[in-house]
Design a protein around this nucleic acid. Structure first.
Length: 213
DNA sequence: CAGAAGATCATCT
DNA sequence: GATGATCTTCTGT
């Protein structure tokens, strides 16, 4: 007999309202912590709780949208609540949630989730790694969720994200990376990384050069 | 058209 | 901590 893979209690599948994404990018990034990322493919459904994210405002020099619209970053200029998926380093896909208003070109990179459902499927996709490493990191996450590989990238890019409310996670840190680029913020401070208090985050970044908020 | 860099990861020392 | 893998996208000529 096959062991069921999901959690004992079914996940709430009611997605957040579109208005959730139509706000300043760092606020969205912060509020995404604790939310559930759900993705379904022919192989099954995977879900996890977002524990680490990264905000990219349009005036951040490190943002793909910093130098204006291109073919690749076009989804960033479109409607909030959709995905912007891009391919990088010749082998990795990264998943973003488009935020703010159309034309503002900001997005949140989803950097790590705590696996909750479809864990066997994630293991199959990721190979022999510790469960802690199944979806810790933007490239690993897309691989575990089946967003990488043979998936049609352009289709994926225009799909609505399935983000559902989860639990409230305490904030561990908000990190700035001023030498790479500036997150644009209301009070002039520079933010970008948004990290929850959770064992599923990437430890090195979570402790280095952090500013509490 | 060529060249460089890249929102990364696995592996090595 | 350093390095190689691997290829798309963007920029400049």
């Amino acid at each position: 007999m096959k062991a069921a893979d999901g959690p004992a209690t079914p996940l709430s599948m009611k997605p957040v309202a579109r208005a959730f994404f139509a706000r300043q990018v760092v606020e969205v990034a912060r509020d995404l912590l604790g939310c559930l990322l759900v993705h379904e493919t022919a192989d099954g459904r995977t879900a996890g709780m977002i524990v680490e994210a990264e905000a990219y405002a349009s005036d951040d020099p490190a943002s793909h949208a910093y130098r204006g619209r291109t073919e690749r970053n076009a989804p960033m200029f479109e409607d909030p609540g959709f995905a912007y998926v891009y391919f990088t380093y010749g082998m990795h896909y990264c998943l973003n949630a488009v935020t703010d208003r159309p034309g503002h070109a900001s997005a949140v990179l989803i950097r790590a989730v705590q696996p909750l459902e479809g864990i066997e499927l994630m293991r199959a996709r990721r190979g022999a790694v510790k469960d802690r490493d199944l979806a810790r990191g933007p490239g690993r996450l897309t691989q575990a969720f089946g967003i990488a590989g043979e998936q049609n990238r352009s289709d994926l890019t225009m799909l609505p994200l399935m983000i559902c409310p989860g639990e409230r996670l305490p904030l561990r840190a908000v990190l700035a990376t001023p030498r790479i680029g500036l997150g644009s913020l209301q009070d002039g401070r520079t933010w970008r990384f948004v990290i929850a208090e959770s064992p599923w985050v990437s430890g090195a970044r979570a402790t280095k050069d952090s500013r509490r908020s």
